[in-house]
Write a protein that binds this DNA or RNA. Structure first.
Lengths: 246, 246
DNA sequence: TGCGCTTTTCGTACATGTACTGAAAGTACA
DNA sequence: TGTACTTTCAGTACATGTACGAAAAGCGCA
């Protein structure tokens, strides 16, 4: 099973090699039409029905080429991600990991349907060309001295953090710009009841402005350094207060 | 603006104190009915229409008490999260942060609609009683020596990681148990084209089994330690390979 | 009392995703 | 050539979220 990037969603091939009616609509045509529609009317107007109409076929016909709406969006996104070329990455394993994770992040962060797709079952497995990103991160962790199991976990944690960052930030990015007033734009903290939070109140309204900053690289570095340190120290640190400051 | 946990979604209160027709349906009744419906027919059968029917009111009437479907789910989830009591947390700031983040995580991870709600604009701001979780994490970071800005960022990164972990794992948890065969259950890696990944192939099919493990605590510790180390070292580390091993 | 305002209620309508069903169109082999 | 089978195509139908707008019900004040 080398991925699911074959042509259609046909039922399992017939045992005796029967061929059947040839499709009049190819997957490439579908993706082209989808991009055409998006370019013309915007993302939010893309729907299965409109896409079928754009292609001049019946609505349900589309379901023979695409399992789901989620499947369609997955195709669009992974095809886009697959265009990110594999760069030459010299330097320490840690820095290769960070650079690669940043490439994943940037390739996916701009997608409006991130929330509908990034958490999809087997998302990573559906990457085609861009599986090199996964491989590079795992390889970097191994090069740094992680065990294979640790390396896989390193990728997993990076993926969690990346998905969370993309989804939380993407959500507010797609809100209408004037929602809630210009000073209340922090997607996390808007509407906080300050009377309950003496520590936050002590720092004034400053947190409101923090959301505008791109904090992904900073958090990523912290996470990667923490993961690598954890792996180097033999086993994960326990939550024991006496152990601090090694 | 002390949160949005007031009764209804009424248009801004009249300037002269006019009262209007009193509501026959309260927010508490709505949430009760929702829980009743969920308990009887399961989460996936909860819909605006069915909920209105359960309450014996018209469908659109519900929209006067609840702005959205997302708003409804937010109400359900935050009310649940608000029941998590604030524990006594002695020990180092780092451990208080970790313990609190774990409480947030556990309180939210079980929710089927996590993906529809956790990234909602101002989610944190809509927490009622449980804002103590936010405050505790920020306070812990400050106690550890972070600047206020750093402390807010610490919370933000923890939130990203937590949301990502919940969403990626929650998605696969709600899949039918037999989807894709029993050996292919890793939500991240199922369907990987192994021929492209020599390093992953080298570790065999081991990664398949890793998804069953609960890796949240481990990743959280790595992230928190990385963030606190970053804050202690004055400014975030750059991606410079010469700087490694301080 | 009645007028005007606010708030609540709800009927109708539309776009959407997709399940079900059967028709149409092609291929392999007799 | 014809028949059996496979695959593609499309029509209809249903549940859903929700926009729009009108009707109803309560309140304060003339």
């Amino acid at each position: 099973m080398a991925g699911r990037n074959d042509g259609t969603v046909s039922r399992r091939n017939a045992p005796h090699g029967r061929t059947g009616r040839p499709p009049v609509t190819s997957r490439a045509q579908i993706l082209d039409a989808a991009r055409r529609l998006i370019g013309r009317d915007g993302w939010e107007k893309l729907s299965i029905r409109r896409l079928a109409a754009e292609l001049g076929i019946g609505t349900m016909t589309l379901y023979h080429h695409v399992r789901d709406k989620e499947d369609l969006l997955l195709l669009l996104i992974t095809e886009y991600a697959d265009q990110v070329p594999q760069p030459d990455l010299p330097g320490e394993p840690r820095d290769r990991i960070i650079a690669t994770a940043t490439l994943i992040h940037d390739a996916l962060a701009a997608w409006p349907w991130a929330a509908e797709v990034l958490t999809a079952d087997g998302f990573i497995g559906r990457l085609g060309e861009s599986v090199w990103m996964v491989e590079t991160i795992v390889a970097g962790a191994i090069d740094h001295g992680c065990t294979p199991d640790q390396a896989v976990h390193v990728f997993r944690h990076i993926w969690y953090y990346t998905v969370g960052e993309i989804l939380v930030r993407a959500h507010s990015a797609h809100q209408p710009a004037d929602a809630g007033g210009p000073t209340d734009r922090d997607p996390l903290f808007s509407g906080l009841d300050k009377s309950r939070m003496p520590r936050l109140v002590a720092l004034g309204d400053r947190w409101r402005t923090l959301s505008a900053q791109d904090t992904y690289p900073q958090g990523l570095r912290a996470l990667v350094d923490g993961l690598l340190a954890q792996a180097s120290s033999g086993r994960p640190r326990q939550v024991a207060s006496a152990e601090r400051g090694e």
